[in-house]
Design a protein around this nucleic acid. Structure first.
Lengths: 136, 136
DNA sequence: CTATAAAATTAGACATTGTCTAATTTGGGA
DNA sequence: TCCCAAATTAGACAATGTCTAATTTTATAG
């Protein structure tokens, strides 16, 4: 799904000029759940579209985050990663592979955040560390 | 509290030779709750002990983490930070200052982590974003 | 259609954070 | 005191990210 024309419309609806480079970046980053870093996006996109520079990938990912198309996380060691899942959710870091895995919001329950004394909380997430269990 | 001799004993009890540099680093990093980065530790320690190098600070902080004296976190944007609070706890990132603030384990409640299907969880924490409320 | 100006892209310099290596210094124990 | 292992060090190197100035592309006014 999400054909090139769909992507173009999506970008335009977010006030983003759909240049060739931006469409190629969007096609990749919106279709993966692997939480790629900027340089990983660069590598992948360059396979399809060799005329894309590192600066453009960094600029574009930043733009997508500003426009609400992506979320950006710094939770595991290593570089910032990008996540097309813009619904609220939690994260599990697979300690064997280092991969970041989305955990549905309702899979765990967090209580008493509003009751936190002395702080005003805008958002929160649970960050878990562990591993996939056999057969998953 | 935690005088120089206390610190030396603490290091020795963790199997760490208490060199001048290590004691100076421990004195600073174990006494602050500001979650400093390695380079911030370097700056502070050099004010008291000019003969300490960047490599030693990085090596020493890594050693302290391995020996269980410190925890290391990568939760906010920016560099890895170190935390002398080795009890389990949560974190709040002050979005105005960027500072990381420890939140006691019991201040919020997380349920159903054991019920997470398909994963084995070793540890977890809640990462909150917000700000201090006036008068705190 | 063409000219123009704004927007987008780019290469590469630069900064920060962290690791590594090889040489030197330090300090504990025979 | 001497020796050797441990600790420290400077600086090279790598990875990640930002920035600038120049170029290319594109939208659109004329």
């Amino acid at each position: 799904m999400t054909s090139a024309t769909d992507i173009k419309q999506l970008l335009q609806h977010h006030g983003i000029q759909p240049s060739v480079q931006r469409v190629a970046i969007a096609e990749h980053v919106l279709a993966t759940d692997r939480h790629p870093s900027a340089d990983q996006v660069l590598q992948e996109v360059q396979r399809k579209l060799p005329v894309v520079s590192r600066a453009t990938v960094y600029n574009t990912l930043k733009l997508f985050v500003e426009k609400g198309l992506l979320r950006q996380y710094q939770i595991a060691e290593g570089p910032t990663v990008y996540d097309a899942n813009i619904e609220r959710h939690h994260h599990l870091i697979d300690e064997e592979t280092g991969r970041v895995i989305d955990i549905p919001w309702d899979a765990v329950e967090v209580k008493n955040v509003e009751g936190l004394e002395g702080f005003e909380v805008d958002s929160y997430m649970v960050v878990l560390r562990g591993r996939r269990r056999d057969g998953s």
